[in-house]
Simulated assay, not measured.
Amino acid sequence: MKPLILLFILILLSGFDSKKEINKWIKEDISYLRNLYIDIHQNPEISLMEKETSKKLAGELNKIGFDVTENFGGYGIVGIFKNGDGPNILYRTDLDALPMEEKTNLPYASKVKTTDIYGSEVGTMHSCGHDMHMTVWTGTARALIEKKDQWSGTLIMIGQPAEEIGAGAMMMLNEGLYSKFPVPDMGIALHSSPTILSGKVGFGKGYIMANTESVDITVFGEGAHGAAPHMSIDPIVTASLIVMELQTIVSRNINPLDDAVITVGSFRGGTKHNIIPDEVKLQLTIRTYKDEVRNLIHKRIKEICDGIGASVGLDKSRWPKITMPDTYTP
């Protein structure tokens, strides 16, 4: 954890007079940041529930003199620090954790349980690195304010909620982010990576990360006793056919020179061993770089779902229902 924090802060603190001065600041502040990181890691909150996380980060900005607006677009945070004439620089972090049980056995591992949207109690952890992002974000703000005599302009510190479900950015934009606060001349963001060695920083030309979309598919059927499957139209079998057929979109429909990912991350259906249910819910994530690839994937998902729905004998009104996002990250 420590080397990544140090290196990312180094990148963003190019206004410091010397490497020696940067190293001195890091030595003085790393204990504070490490404790903050552990606190955030032990107290994760999932998308749309980031109340205490948001409050904690807003408090960090308030302590160092930012003008802070809380609960902006859900639990979003906007911190503004004006320091004379100069560019408007936006630096953004995400706030939310994931509904996953932590199995790292670390002494500071999360033991938090959360009730998810299905009413189930699930483990909760910062398994995507947002705890790291928030720590770096806070450390950068603290360092830049300490050295405010060495730069001029306006800092816009954004804490974005609900990143994991692809909703938080639009929530903040719809709330009027760029009409109520300065429009940035440039924006800065980062993401921790499990594939880059500790002590290294990754840069790239062009795309670094893909557009992401979350798609929901409700697969209908006709329930029956598990010992009488011939009296059902089994949605578990139907959904399984859909899952397998979705795998052919990237391998057989997308140009091999284009990048795309379709992953089924959730398959929910049934309540008991011997009951065939009448409904199954699938949750997908889609990653693309080009609009034409995205549109083709959408088209093929619908064609596959309609075709399989018809082939198992469902009435057209009961073919799988697909919920596509209206907006996406371009």
Rank of each mutant, 00 (worst) to 15 (best):
P44E: 05
G129T: 02
S179M: 07
L257P: 06
G313R: 00
R287T: 01
T138W: 02
K148Y: 11
H273S: 10
L246S: 00
P229W: 07
K281M: 06
S317A: 11
K51E: 15
L57R: 06
G199R: 02
K302I: 12
V264T: 05
E175F: 10
A228C: 12
G73Y: 03
K302G: 04
S311C: 09
D315S: 11
I5C: 03
K205I: 12
G59V: 13
D278N: 03
A109Q: 13
V183D: 08
S192F: 09
V136S: 08
L4V: 11
H273K: 10
R294D: 02
N23T: 13
E21Q: 15
T154G: 02
L144I: 10
K147M: 14
E245C: 01
D94A: 07
H230V: 04
T154F: 04
A162S: 11
I117E: 03
E292C: 05
G270I: 06
T115I: 12
M172E: 05
I30N: 13
L155R: 03
E146K: 14
G168S: 01
N174L: 09
N255H: 08
S311K: 07
I30K: 12
Q150G: 10
A228L: 14
D185I: 08
I26E: 10
I297Y: 01
D278G: 10
R294H: 00
S120T: 02
K316W: 06
L12W: 12
I301Q: 00
L10A: 14
V201I: 15
K113L: 15
D67Y: 04
S179N: 14
V261N: 05
N71A: 08
Y207R: 10
N23V: 11
D39R: 07
I117V: 15
K316S: 11
A260P: 03
I11N: 04
T124K: 02
K19Y: 15
G139T: 14
G166C: 13
V237H: 10
D291G: 02
I208W: 09
L173N: 07
V112L: 02
I38C: 07
V280L: 07
E163R: 04
G15Q: 15
A228F: 15
E60L: 07
I40K: 06
S311R: 04
I77L: 05
G168Q: 00
G187R: 02
V136Y: 01
S120C: 09
G166K: 05
T138R: 10
G139K: 04
Q42I: 00
G119C: 02
T327H: 13
D291N: 05
K2F: 11
K200W: 14
H191K: 03
T285N: 15
T69F: 08
I322D: 04
G202K: 00
A260C: 01
H225R: 01
H191I: 05
R318P: 04
N295T: 00
G265V: 05
A224Y: 03
H298I: 03
E28L: 14
V112M: 06
